[in-house]
Amino acid sequence: MATTDITHDSLARIIAANRRTDVVMASIGILVLMVAGTLLGAVFIDLLASGWERLVNPDFYTNFPSRRPAQAGIISAVVGTSLVMLVTAVIAVPLGVAAGLYLEEYAAKNWLTDLIEINVSNLAGVPSIIYGLLALGLFVYGFGTGETILTAGLTLALLILPVIIVATREAVRSIPQDLREAAYGLGADKWQTVRLYVLPAARPGILTGVIVGLARAIGEAAPVITIGALTFIAFLPPAPLQIESPFINFDWLTSPFTVMPIQMFNWVSRPQAEFHINAAATGVVLMVMTLAMNALAIYIRLRLRRLQR
């Protein structure tokens, strides 16, 4: 029978070799992290450096797009993005939260629930440009909503629906069963329990999902290009609020528009390098907005976790 002599030396060698492997593995992980972090920094600094001269010029924020790169601004894109996001939030938030509540609190375990679940998880993976084709075929030509703020808002709402549904489900699932039982014990019925106890407790988690979803919608260009958003908009849509009665007006919904990612895409696609400066400056504004929203979502989640502990 063959035997292996285990001596103090051979053990020490094995342990030292294992330690070395550990150091190598940890270094690989840290290296990847550093490269990723550096790239995030590089993207931002590259944009900042390229777009600086436009960023510090106040005209950039108040001017309309122009054929002359030095006078072009992003006012119509900023207003367009804000109004589209308004539509998106108004549609996606109630729909997504309701669907998430249904799947988590009401759904029976049957094939229909399975189908809805597979469907939601598949929708999350459908490329955004396919939503654009859906909107082009169904909204623009089918329902005749045209190339308007309403169409864009609706399209992006469908796009971020899975994000909000998943966030709602996770938030609702994390609420202890005790809370529901306490509510039932006080005589509440199902809907009262959900509305008065579960939903308020899940609010921070849902809010996180909504913010992440809207941040994604702000940065999306592909579906909005597909429905035919224009890139040269030298006017603003009618204001949603007005001084005369009835104070609120909905004409802006059917107005042509542009949004910031499309404005940036248009400028970066031009051959003249002067327009690339505008594109970089728009990119900085876009990145600051989306990163700030994502950071806010992370902050809410961290605070929530500390509270729950």
Binding site: A36, L39, V43, L47, A215, G219, A221, V268, G283, L291
Partner: peptide
């Protein structure tokens, strides 16, 4: 950090 990386708009990555 990973979530922030995921949040960068794709048009920016294109640039």
């Amino acid at each position: 950090l990973l979530e922030l990386l995921e949040g960068v708009p794709t048009v920016v990555y294109g640039f």
